[in-house]
Design a protein around this nucleic acid. Structure first.
Length: 263
DNA sequence: AAGCTTTACAACCGCGAACGT
DNA sequence: AACGTTCGCGGTTGTAAAGCT
């Protein structure tokens, strides 16, 4: 028996969301919360599947989203976490309040991968590319795996990973045949970075920050969605202004009827 | 200015986990 | 325990915007 589709796709809209659809979804969720994603489109009058609604809410409409470029510090933290967790984007994202797993995944694929390659590091193993090629040549010729489990086997136990990363990088750095001064400098910077970062420390800070952020929305995540509330509408409106990709939404500011109607 | 390529990111898909019956 | 349903995750694709020739 095959797997059932997540929804009856007949008559459902796909592709980019319109502002009207966003309005509908936000209005519905603000008024009703999220009991069951499957029912959301039916009850809100959207011609989308529940899955699509969930994704739109989590990745774009959630009021507590932090929009805009990831800082270099955030990038570095992502690299550190990726070394420990592999492609577990949701786990990684959980350390960045207001950031989504999709956002971090995209950022990884479009920017950080390149950055690591420039540094002479394999993005999936975080090891110098030359060294990896040597070892794989000896062992076998199977392509690298992106599977987190396999990565975890490749990667050492996480406990002392952070502490060792710096010295390891420093050690490997010497093994790498530096093709240019620039590459050497970049690699050196990464080594210094690894040494200076105490991942466990900032992870703990992050965890505490999660509950202490200056903007601490009362919206629960989708996973804990039964009790969505709005305790500060103004905060949300302010945050909406900072959502970079809400182009064209500002002009509708006066039309945010759903905010008023929702309360 | 036009056409092509690259980049960035929103959205989709399929799978496994979790949960309820 | 078995089965069905829903959710969440990670991989992948589609496409608009930006950059380049």
């Amino acid at each position: 028996m095959g797997r059932q589709p997540c929804c009856d796709k007949v008559g459902l809209k796909r592709g980019p969301w319109t502002i009207e659809e966003d309005h509908k979804l936000m209005n519905f969720i603000l008024n009703n919360g999220i009991q069951c994603w499957r029912m959301v489109p039916k009850l809100s009058g959207l011609l989308r599947c529940g899955k699509s609604c969930r994704l739109r809410w989590i990745n774009y409409l959630r009021p507590d989203l932090k929009r805009g470029m990831l800082s270099e510090m955030e990038e570095n933290q992502i690299i550190q976490l990726h070394a420990r967790l592999g492609n577990r984007w949701s786990k990684i994202a959980s350390h960045f309040p207001g950031r989504t797993d999709n956002e971090i995944k995209n950022h990884w694929n479009t920017r950080i991968k390149k950055r690591l390659k420039i540094l002479g590091l394999d993005p999936s193993t975080h090891k110098p590319i030359e060294q990896k090629e040597k070892s794989t040549a000896i062992v076998d010729e199977t392509p690298e795996s992106d599977s987190p489990k396999e990565q975890e086997e490749v990667l050492e136990a996480p406990d002392n990973k952070a502490e060792r990363d710096g010295s390891e990088i420093e050690g490997r750095k010497n093994e790498v045949d530096m093709s240019s001064d620039e590459t050497a400098d970049l690699l050196n910077n990464y080594g210094i970075l690894c040494e200076s970062l105490d991942v466990d420390l900032w992870m703990n800070q992050d965890n505490t920050n999660t509950s202490n952020t200056s903007y601490s929305p009362s919206f629960s995540s989708a996973g804990d969605s039964s009790s969505i509330q709005v305790d500060s509408l103004q905060q949300w409106v302010d945050s909406v202004d900072s959502m970079l990709s809400w182009d064209g939404f500002n002009q509708l500011e006066d039309e945010l009827f759903f905010l008023e109607n929702g309360q």
